[in-house]
């Protein structure tokens, strides 16, 4: 059974069809890339799965259970982790506290009023920081981290609740080329070892073609192609609509 099943998603804004019946699935341990030109409906699709937007039609199923239209925090509790295009962490907390906050939320201990939070879930938090290579930064304020480290901290927080599905919106946006590949490789390792299903959008084609298991191409709110990376790279329609001749995708400086 697929972790995520999306069926016939449709959404219109003021008469403009942003998404017109999109269906796909993501299985455990699989990295699915959602690509397409701006305005193709990637964000809309993404935000529907994440619960920020309610679709006009269609269903979202998580591990067989219908979850269409549930708000983000309910989605989180049902096993959806998420990272943002502009990484969002808690700046005034230390790196360790950031992960502790995520673990406390996952354990539903948010409303404990007396016991010091510093004592809760310390080891697990430390372990997550080790897995993401952030253990050395544990005591630092998150506001002082370099952007690449913020992204890794965000990843540690997103997987703290042991989600079934990880949603990543342009995970490598704003990172240096070497960092980009390191981050997506880290995601891939975690995916395999934890049996995570990952759905991500991305503009950086070296990341997509280097690491995605499958690719879904959206244009004008419709799926124009889906399949493994070689098939997508060779697809003439995808080249015409999105990839171009390849002269501009010659890698990042």
């Amino acid at each position: 059974m697929s972790v995520l099943e999306v069926e016939g998603l449709a959404k219109a804004y003021g008469g403009v069809q942003a998404l017109g019946g999109v269906s796909f699935t993501v299985g455990a341990g699989e990295l699915l890339a959602l690509i397409g030109p701006n305005g193709a409906g990637k964000s809309t699709c993404f935000n529907i799965v994440d619960g920020q937007i309610r679709p006009d039609r269609g269903t979202v199923r998580l591990a067989g259970r219908e979850v269409t239209g549930l708000p983000p925090r309910r989605m989180a509790r049902l096993g959806v982790g998420r990272t943002f295009q502009i990484a969002a962490v808690f700046d005034s907390l230390t790196v360790l506290e950031n992960v502790q906050a995520a673990l406390i939320a996952a354990r539903r201990q948010t409303f404990a009023l007396w016991r010091p939070a510093a004592t809760i879930a310390r080891e697990e938090a430390q372990h997550l920081l080790e897995q993401t290579g952030m253990a050395d930064h544990a005591g630092r304020p998150a506001s002082e981290l370099a952007y690449g480290d913020v992204k890794r901290l965000e990843l540690a927080m997103a997987i703290a609740s042991e989600p079934l599905l990880l949603l990543m919106d342009e995970p490598t946006a704003g990172m240096a080329p070497a960092e980009r590949l390191a981050l997506i490789e880290l995601v891939k390792r975690l995916t395999r070892s934890r049996g995570l299903a990952v759905l991500f959008t991305e503009h950086s084609m070296d990341v997509v073609f280097g690491h995605a298991d499958r690719v879904v191409v959206l244009a004008g709110g419709q799926i124009v192609a889906s399949g493994d990376v070689d098939a997508i790279r060779a697809d003439p329609q995808v080249r015409a609509l999105y990839l171009g001749t390849g002269r501009a995708a010659g890698g990042r400086a």
Partner: peptide, 14 residues
């Protein structure tokens, strides 16, 4: 100018 824009648009921009 190329950040966050589809490759084919980047080509037009060039």
């Amino acid at each position: 100018p190329s950040e966050g824009v589809a490759p084919i648009i980047v080509e037009q921009m060039i």
